[in-house]
């Protein structure tokens, strides 16, 4: 196998990972920019989404209907969480409250899943088995499918944000909360929409990751950190930023361990993000 094939394999893998990260980051960036909170339990929504698929598949539903149902359930859960826990209360510091509440939520959801589903590692039905040959390099089929689903979700989100009134209002709210409020956009409605969409995307990411990798109660922690890195890299509230940031991080995770070392792959992005924060505090594609 030539080194070109190796590059190709690594790149495809990186892109597949990158799209999962993008799904996570999109939700986080919507929530962070519209609601102004740090939702640290987003990784647990991702985990919950995967477990919901597992449960539904166990009840005899097909994999794809199960993923759709799980996304819907998580969207509803997102709305409930927004109304019940994250809606800002006056007299409290929003960021601080959100960190503490979401940390509490993380602990509760993780141990609830442990209690309900047990500690056993679960798996979802495989999206596909085997690999396809692209230019002579074997590329796992399930990763290509995962890329497909993620792209589809992103296109739908893009259409929603650009073509519907609610979507346009959300973009406005993400870019300038006070301004959009003055224009008569209800921030609470925007927050609910952001949580719903964010949670649905996280559920999709969780389900795809669960099908490619495995399901564990603690699977949410790593993508959460990746998501944070991406939204900082891409810039708060920037959807193209989340896309580019996610792909960059995915490529780093796919390629760097193959050609350099895993140590560089894990420390590198953090250092890059710290530098970005220091010199372009609004992110690569961020705006003021």
């Amino acid at each position: 196998m030539s080194s070109l094939d190796l590059w190709l394999q690594a790149t495809v893998n990186g892109i597949a990972l990158g799209w999962l990260y993008v799904l996570m980051a999109l939700g986080l960036t919507l929530i962070l920019s519209i609601m102004g909170i740090l939702q640290l339990a987003h990784g647990e929504i991702y985990m919950l989404g995967a477990y919901a698929v597992h449960y539904l598949v166990g009840r005899g539903l097909g994999l794809y209907p199960a993923i759709a149902t799980s996304m819907f359930i998580m969207a509803v859960l997102g709305i409930i969480l927004e109304r019940g826990l994250f809606r800002p209360r006056s007299g409290r510091e929003v960021v601080l409250c959100s960190i503490v509440i979401s940390t509490g939520l993380t602990l509760i959801l993780t141990s609830a899943i442990v209690v309900i589903f047990g500690l056993y590692t679960k798996s979802l039905p495989l999206l596909a088995t085997g690999s396809v040959e692209i230019f002579g390099a074997a590329v796992p089929k399930d990763r290509i499918l995962a890329i497909g689903f993620s792209v589809l979700a992103l296109v739908l989100l893009y259409l929603f944000l650009k073509k519907t009134r609610l979507g346009l209002a959300m973009i406005a709210s993400a870019q300038n909360r006070e301004g959009s409020f003055l224009k008569g956009i209800n921030p609470n409605r925007m927050s609910m929409a952001a949580m719903a969409i964010g949670c649905a995307l996280a559920a999709l990411a969780g389900a795809l990751a669960g099908a490619i990798l495995q399901l564990q109660p603690y699977m949410g922690a790593l993508p959460m950190i990746k998501g944070l890195v991406i939204i900082v890299l891409g810039g708060l509230g920037s959807i193209p930023g989340a896309l580019i940031g996610g792909l960059i991080l995915g490529l780093i995770d796919g390629i760097v361990p193959v050609f350099f070392s895993p140590a560089v792959a894990s420390v590198g992005p953090l250092v890059v993000v710290i530098l970005v924060l220091l010199f372009r505090p609004k992110g690569l594609l961020g705006h003021d």
């Binding site: 394999q9 796992p140 990798l213 193959v258």
Partner: peptide, 21 residues
């Protein structure tokens, strides 16, 4: 190939090992 503790995705590691045929 050495992989760090906590790795969940083994595709990169296996890509590299597999390259040695």
């Amino acid at each position: 190939e050495k992989w760090p503790w906590g790795t969940t995705d083994f595709v990169p590691i296996m890509t590299k090992l597999n390259a040695a045929k």
